[in-house]
Amino acid sequence: MSKSDLTISLNEILFYFTRAAFGVNVPIGLSEDFAHSNIWIAENGFDPSLCSLEALNNLDNQVSSLAIKFEKLNESGHFFCHEDKFLSALEASVSVVDWIEVSTPTDELKISNVDAPFLVVSAIGANQCSGLTVSWVDQDKSQYQVNFIDNEIWEIISSSVNPIELTSGADMLITSFDANDNIPQGSNIKKFNVTKAKLKTLNNGVQVRENWQGIYDYFSRCLVKSSAESRASGAGAGMVDTD
């Protein structure tokens, strides 16, 4: 299971990604949300390990932090990390979804210096929030806009051909979706139908590539080393069972 280039199931994403986050000391509740976001990523045809490994690495290397603060400014809110680090997308994503639930539809939300913006997008998708636009400019100055049009349809509009999963280090803005907004010329547009994409994934499985090994390594931190004693007594059953 620890090799890369595997086809895995959505249930395996839940199992391994929850524990991979737990393996870098993310509280279990956030880890569960992280795994559900990754399921949404996979259901839509992406390799979930691509963006998530970076976010876990950032936490493990203390480049990012789960510490989060919120300030309210008139009609908008603002999430940021008060430490001199990236705001971890694992914390940003759940806080954003919570904010969407308690805010009014016209409110705007800024999230500063998020390490893995696509994880925030995926949390919004996984929680079936619609009528929203998420936009950001990443460290490479590429512009991204994700529109959650309704519960079925979402789209990516970007100035870059780089994979959206790899965007990093961005200030994000969440606003109400406006179908009349102009799309900048030369943008790449990709539309997704959640139901159709999920059906395809269920029938074909989820391809994970070289980053999978890193996810598995973090997952492995949740495993307890076996000893002769635990092997003999921990499961209560004998080592040989003939009858």
Partner: peptide
């Protein structure tokens, strides 16, 4: 409760006797 590295076998440990409390299942 914990998962062993032995094929992820679930096991039941006693604190102070078995290792792995830090990796306790939630």
């Amino acid at each position: 409760w914990y998962y062993s590295e032995d094929k992820l076998e679930p096991r039941f440990g006693s604190k102070g006797v078995d290792k792995g409390v830090e990796q306790e299942m939630p």
